[in-house]
């Protein structure tokens, strides 16, 4: 009985958002210049965030899976932290680090004249911060379960560490990397709290789909629902993409 209540509780809001969606005006709403800009910006930022997550996340995962050093548990905790940290707090933390008067931010500004808050780069940074853990954890798990012997074997055949990684390790972790990247991407494109806290809200620069939906709700709820539908579609797409990993569990 409680199970049914639980299932209904989870299913009902999704069902009602689909039901209340302005289907007839959907095309028109989503094609408006403002929304197109928002969608494009969201896609741009979330893809960059995913790429950055992979770029630094894979080496980090490697370190966690293969390294042996003091403070490894601490480092893993640090990596997981953004997953459980309230996004607004994450945004605040980013301000203290990369904000104009933040530790890194001041240095960046004074040395390179670079300021991250309120820029598209800032949005990407905020999204990367919250999305990267998903990728790191997926890849780390895969690295742990792959046979180290393959890498040793490749090395004895004359392969340097980069060749070993590219031709042996990477193919072995590819499925996990893909699902991790998909999760990270979904997290990035749906990110709200850290983004609005750190990067603010400016159409065309930092206003991504969730921010646009939040502000549209006060002015034009139908547009908010139309935007939400995009994110619902993304989530369903990710779920379908990962169905082999999640939905099939004997």
């Amino acid at each position: 009985m409680l199970a049914l209540v639980g299932a209904a509780f989870l299913a009902l809001p999704i069902a009602t958002i689909l039901w209340r969606a302005p289907w007839s005006r959907l095309g028109e709403l989503l094609a408006s210049e403002e929304l197109v800009t928002t969608l494009r910006l969201s896609l741009f930022c979330s893809l960059w965030a995913t790429a950055l997550s992979a770029l630094v996340g894979i080496p980090l995962a490697w370190l966690l899976a293969r390294g042996s050093f003091r403070g490894k548990r601490f480092l893993r905790g640090l990596v997981i932290l953004p997953v459980v940290l309230p996004p607004v707090i994450a945004g605040l933390a980013l301000i203290t680090a990369f904000g104009r008067s933040g530790v890194m931010g001041r240095w960046l500004f004074e040395t390179f004249d670079v300021s991250l808050p309120f820029t598209t780069a800032g949005t990407i940074l905020a999204e990367t911060f919250v999305a990267m853990p998903f990728l790191v954890l997926a890849v780390e798990g895969a690295l742990r379960s792959t046979e180290r012997g393959y890498e040793d074997a490749a090395a004895t055949l004359g392969a340097g560490s980069w060749t070993v990684f590219r031709r042996v390790t990477l193919p072995a972790i590819a499925p996990a990397l893909l699902s991790g990247a998909l999760l990270a991407w979904a997290r990035a494109i749906g990110e709200f709290g850290a983004t609005i806290t750190f990067a603010g809200n400016l159409p065309g620069a930092t206003r991504t789909i969730p921010l646009a939906a939040f502000f549209a709700l006060q002015r034009e709820p139908e547009a908010a629902i139309a935007l939400s539908l995009v994110l619902v579609a993304v989530s369903l797409g990710v779920l379908i993409g990962l169905r082999d990993r999640w939905l099939v569990r004997a």
Partner: peptide, 11 residues
């Protein structure tokens, strides 16, 4: 008669 490019539009 001032035009300002706001860096952010807050909630």
């Amino acid at each position: 008669g001032v035009s300002v490019d706001a860096r952010s539009l807050e909630p």
